[in-house]
Amino acid sequence: MAFKLKLKHVLAAAALSAASLPVMAAECSIDVEANDAMQFNTKEIAISKSCKEFTINLKHTGQLPKAAMGHNLVIAKSADMQGVETDGIAAGADKNYVKDGDERVIAHTKLIGGGESDSVKVPVDKLTGDDVFFCSFPGHGSMMKGVVKLVD
């Protein structure tokens, strides 16, 4: 009888531990918000290696128009971030601050303003394990950035 009670407590404790573990997005997608204070609501995007494609839904929760406080979300290798930003600024707002055909860019959303949203599908096989996401609007990348992690 004592063994049964101990086993019951062990199983209950295991269930509680499992409940506190981080949960992966079952649908291979995530919602990311950006605001008028030049911030994303996350510093990390965890993508399961089991996903063939991962969708990022970007929503601008602020009110300022994209000409004043536009945001996008760009994914590239961390070593390429600065070059992608520099070339994106030269490309301009009409090109979403992303150079046409830039092979360093793994995926990107369009530039959006307050109240707008956009989505991008990320080909998981293109991720390197040393990737970042950032906003390439001029001056935003220093604050609006995070890491993209591949997880099992």
Rank of each mutant, 00 (worst) to 15 (best):
G115W: 08
L150M: 11
S136C: 00
A13I: 07
A68T: 12
I106D: 06
V74W: 05
L73Q: 02
S78W: 07
K4C: 02
G141Q: 10
G62C: 08
M144G: 03
S20C: 09
H108M: 00
T109R: 01
E53I: 10
L73F: 05
G83H: 03
A19K: 12
F3S: 13
A19I: 09
T55M: 03
D87G: 15
L73Y: 01
V147G: 14
C28P: 07
T55D: 06
H60E: 02
N35S: 12
F134V: 00
L111Q: 09
K149N: 12
A19W: 03
E85K: 15
G92R: 06
L11I: 13
T42W: 04
E116D: 07
G88V: 03
T109G: 06
S17D: 11
L16Q: 11
Q82L: 11
G88K: 13
K149Y: 09
K99P: 03
M1T: 13
L21C: 06
M144E: 09
A34E: 01
A12T: 04
K95Q: 13
G113V: 07
K149P: 01
S117D: 13
F133A: 07
A37M: 05
V105P: 11
H71L: 09
S117M: 07
E116V: 06
P22W: 05
E27C: 13
F54R: 01
A18E: 04
G129Q: 04
R104E: 01
V147C: 06
K49S: 12
